[in-house]
Amino acid sequence: MSIQHFRVALIPFFAAFCLPVFAHPETLVKVKDAEDQLGARVGYIELDLNSGKILESFRPEERFPMMSTFKVLLCGAVLSRVDAGQEQLGRRIHYSQNDLVEYSPVTEKHLTDGMTVRELCSAAITMSDNTAANLLLTTIGGPKELTAFLHNMGDHVTRLDRWEPELNEAIPNDERDTTMPAAMATTLRKLLTGELLTLASRQQLIDWMEADKVAGPLLRSALPAGWFIADKSGAGERGSRGIIAALGPDGKPSRIVVIYTTGSQATMDERNRQIAEIGASLIKHW
């Protein structure tokens, strides 16, 4: 067993022997301040990774656009098919120029040779490549099948209805392509620590998230040296922004954090800054 596999296998073990965790309302004060600064709703939840206990939450059962955070769930569904012998990570998928959609920095470079399922998941999570996500959605049967996968996990809230990039439209009061912070946090925890996926697939999923290259201005910008984070960000229309993450000190994750916002007129930089400040408060009061 590799060191990384050992780390993920012992996530519940280490967490069980940690000192009790206590909620700190100071972080919620910052979440509410972010709402004021952005002029928009902000949803927040913080779960203990081992027990699933909610440590703090704000608007945990209000719907927010998922945006690209759905790509972690998508690759979880792909990995479940791999575990069941219905898919192979090494299978190569070929596609054409007509398949390319807006923001496809990886797939646009491989029109000639195609990409493997493993490479597509890596591109979808680490670079948020939209064509990679659409190609992977095709392998599982489309958005409705991802929703069905989530329902089978016990998540009857999260739903995907459309493809990239239309799913980022974020129309107010439109339930399409949305989740709730509580539902997303619980589902992410199941994917990373539950028995739904094999140990190898859980490790692969967290490795992809740990290698995320496009979430630097968010929670990662607030992390002290030595902290662990595996995350996936999302951005959408109407001032929408979000991030889902597993993080913790001492090089291992111990909490799940989900943050979503929508309806702001603020710039992307300002949305990023507010999420980073929430992260800084979380870490300060850990």
Score class of each variant (00 low, 15 high):
Ala246Arg: 07
Thr116Val: 14
Arg255Thr: 13
Gly248Gln: 03
Ile140Cys: 13
Val72Ser: 04
Ala246Cys: 13
Tyr95Cys: 06
Gly76Asn: 01
Glu46Thr: 14
Gln97Cys: 04
Ile125Ser: 02
His285Asp: 07
Asp177His: 00
Ala133Asp: 01
His151Asp: 07
Pro217Gln: 12
Lys232Asn: 01
Glu62Gly: 02
Leu196Ile: 11
Tyr44Leu: 04
Asn173Val: 08
Ala222His: 05
Arg255Ser: 07
Ile125Lys: 00
Gly234Tyr: 04
Ile206Val: 13
Ala245Thr: 07
Arg271Asp: 15
Ala182Cys: 03
Gly154Cys: 08
Ser96Gln: 10
Gly52Thr: 10
Met153Arg: 03
His151Tyr: 12
Ala266Thr: 03
Lys213Ile: 09
Trp208Phe: 11
Gln204Met: 04
Gln37Lys: 04
Asp207Ile: 13
Leu188Ile: 15
Leu136Cys: 13
Asp33Thr: 03
Pro181Trp: 00
Glu119Asp: 15
Asn272Gln: 13
Asp174His: 12
Ile259Asp: 00
Ala280Pro: 06
Ala215Val: 12
Ile278Lys: 00
Ser281Pro: 07
Asp36Tyr: 03
Ala185Cys: 06
Gly90Ala: 14
Pro181Phe: 00
Ala123Ser: 07
His110Cys: 03
Glu56Lys: 09
Lys232Cys: 01
Ile244Val: 13
Val82Cys: 13
Ile229Gly: 10
Gly251Phe: 12
Leu146Trp: 12
Thr193Ser: 06
Ile171Gln: 15
Ile171Glu: 15
Arg159Thr: 12
Ile283Met: 05
Ala230Asn: 01
Thr178Lys: 04
Gly216Thr: 10
Thr187Val: 12
Arg92Met: 06
Arg91Asn: 11
Asp174Val: 11
Lys284Cys: 08
Asp33Cys: 02
Val258Lys: 00
Gly43Val: 01
Ala34Asn: 06
Glu277Ile: 14
Tyr44Gly: 07
Ile256Leu: 05
Ala276Asn: 12
Phe70Asp: 01
Asp250Ser: 02
Gly90Val: 12
Ile171Ser: 15
His156Ile: 09
Arg92Thr: 12
Ala133Ile: 01
Lys30Val: 09
Trp227Gln: 01
Phe228Glu: 09
Gly114Val: 04
Lys252Tyr: 14
Thr107Gln: 01
Gly194Leu: 13
Ile140Tyr: 06
Thr198Tyr: 12
Leu197Phe: 15
Thr198Asn: 12
His24Cys: 05
Leu196Met: 10
Thr179Pro: 00
Leu146Thr: 04
Gly279Tyr: 08
Ala280Glu: 13
Trp227Lys: 00
Leu136Tyr: 00
Leu191Cys: 13
Tyr95Met: 11
His110Met: 09
Ile229Val: 07
Thr116Arg: 11
Ser264Val: 09
Gly251Met: 09
Asp177Gly: 05
Arg92Ala: 06
Phe228Pro: 01
Glu87His: 08
Ala124Glu: 01
Ala34Lys: 02
Gly234Ser: 11
Arg91Val: 07
Pro60Ile: 15
Gly142Ser: 07
Glu145Lys: 15
Asp83Trp: 05
Leu247Thr: 10
Leu49Pro: 12
Val82Asn: 13
Thr147Glu: 09
Ile54Phe: 05
Ala245Met: 10
Val214Gln: 07
Ala77Leu: 07
Met184Ser: 03
Lys190Ile: 14
Glu87Lys: 10
Leu49Asp: 07
Ala211Ser: 09
Met66Cys: 06
Leu47Asn: 12
Ala211Lys: 15
Ala246Tyr: 06
Trp208His: 07
Ala222Tyr: 02
Gly43Lys: 00
Ile125Gly: 01
Leu74Val: 14
Leu55Val: 15
Lys53Ala: 11
Ile125Gln: 02
Met180Ile: 02
Ala280His: 14
Leu111Pro: 08
Ser57Ala: 06
Ser57Tyr: 07
Ala246Asn: 15
Lys213Ala: 03
Glu102Ala: 11
Gly52Ser: 09
Asp155Val: 01
Gly52Ile: 04
Lys109Leu: 10
Leu55Asn: 14
Leu120Ser: 10
Val258Ser: 05
